[in-house]
Nucleic acid binder design. Structure first.
Lengths: 105, 105
DNA sequence: TCGACAATTCGATAACCGTCTAATTGATTA
DNA sequence: TAATCAATTAGACGGTTATCGAATTGTCGA
């Protein structure tokens, strides 16, 4: 909820604009091997659960939860909780906006 | 010197390939407001000296030197020392390779 | 209702990092 | 040569953060 990006001003496919603070948050989020790995996996397989992640990454559940919250706060992933499980998805719109933002310089 | 990228295999305009470790180093380097600001300035004005930077950023000479070394180690900038002064340039080839690398996921 | 399980939160610890001052190196000029 | 200045290095301090085990919350099946 930290970064809203709810500015659909009626345009058709206007790209999302990333604020400087969100760009920093995303860069910080990506500047960790584990979190980068999570993003890579989500980008490749489109969608996974927490347990799937833990099978690949050598980290405790607590640490994974911490990283996921970090990625969610940065706006990079969406965590959809379904009963006992959590479904993770990469927010590709934010990802593209982030890349477009870096392209601009 | 940490990241060489001296692999011109005779091709014409083959893009540089970023290793995973260099990608991480670049992300870490960018995940700091001051260093990001430095990169933005270098991208805008093409080339500047240390003293010019210090006029804009509220940091000590020692801290700036530390940040510049970090950016240089990541491969993002080139520091050309001319006598007393230092000339800073953004390594646009690396920057583009970095962006292309992120695009791939 | 009662365990088993997924995920989160809490509290602590260790490592990392940005920042500074002070000291140093190296170059230019009086 | 001595003084000055740009930049770097050394060393220290404080804040941030990645990590874990333990406790907690919430959900599902027996």
């Amino acid at each position: 909820m930290a970064h809203s990006n709810a500015n659909s001003t009626g345009g058709e496919n206007d790209a999302i604009n990333i604020s400087a603070s969100q760009r920093l948050a995303i860069l910080k989020a990506l500047a960790d091997p584990r979190r980068m790995e999570i993003i890579e996996r989500l980008a490749a397989t489109a969608c996974t659960g927490c347990s799937d992640m833990r099978e690949c990454l050598p980290i405790s559940a607590a640490t994974l939860s911490h990283h996921l919250k970090e990625l969610e706060t940065a706006g990079l992933i969406h965590i959809e909780r379904e009963g006992k499980f959590a479904r993770l998805t990469l927010r590709r719109d934010i990802w593209q906006a982030f890349l477009a933002d870096l392209q601009k310089l």
